[in-house]
């Protein structure tokens, strides 16, 4: 059996595009999911029952559904249900964002409730509104405290972006698998894909370890 590793070099431009798309997907998802997670966490902690119940339903639904199912569902069902057809990229982004927002919501909620009550009381005693207390005192501390968890979620997300290849978003996994089926260089392309994901993921994992050491201690 002969190998043709040159195939990877030949397709370097497409692979680079795939990497760029993967990074773009992960970054865009995380940006949406951080805001989404905070909003959902605040809703969950609302004293209004319907608001907190709505958030709980959202979180429990999207957190406990397989992501790949969500991707397919967004691709096939959403256009029929809403009547609007989105690009594969927008659809993939939506599916990933829904899933990661649900995870982040739980993360932020844990962070917010871990800030002791005296902190909010001290801020209230200055005359701040509930919203100012949240924005100036509770959230900044909560975010710092959950940074290690967010970092871990990021690393999972980065790899999970490969799932949207099933609906044809041209990120790294899709591009690699496309080249594989055009060239029949299965082993080479799968190896290349693994090496690229690893090279991208390993520094991130190391960074996460560093964040854990740096911020993981409480107070």
């Amino acid at each position: 059996m002969s190998f043709d590793w040159g195939i990877i070099w030949q397709h370097r431009a497409e692979l680079a595009d795939g990497v760029a798309m993967t990074v773009l997907l992960a970054v865009a998802t995380m940006l949406i999911a951080i805001s989404g997670g905070i909003v959902l966490a605040l809703m969950r902690l609302s004293p209004l029952r319907p608001v907190s119940a709505a958030s709980a339903c959202f979180v429990e639904f999207f957190r406990n559904t397989p992501l790949i199912l969500l991707v397919y569902w967004a691709f096939y069902v959403m256009p029929v249900a809403i009547g609007v057809e989105f690009s594969a990229f927008a659809t993939g982004l939506a599916a990933l964002s829904l899933n990661v927002s649900a995870y982040n919501a739980e993360t932020f909620r844990a962070g917010i409730v871990s800030i002791r009550r005296g902190q909010s009381e001290a801020a209230l005693a200055l005359g701040m509104s509930r919203w100012q207390v949240m924005r100036e005192v509770v959230l900044p501390q909560a975010v710092r405290r959950v940074l290690p968890v967010l970092a871990s979620t990021w690393v999972s997300l980065f790899k999970d972006t490969s799932l949207v290849s099933v609906i044809g978003v041209s990120e790294l996994a899709y591009v690699s698998l496309q080249i594989r089926s055009q060239t029949f260089r299965i082993l080479e392309m799968l190896t290349a894909m693994a090496v690229i994901y690893w090279l991208l993921g390993y520094p991130q994992a190391k960074l996460v370890d560093w964040i854990h050491r740096r911020y993981g201690v409480s107070e």
Binding site: G118, Q119, E121, A122, A123, L124, A125, L126, G127, E136, V137, Q141, E219
Partner: peptide
């Protein structure tokens, strides 16, 4: 509240 200052046993400075 803005017309009353309050000092707590556990300080509660914003860390």
């Amino acid at each position: 509240r803005r017309r009353m200052g309050m000092v707590f046993q556990s300080f509660e400075l914003f860390p």
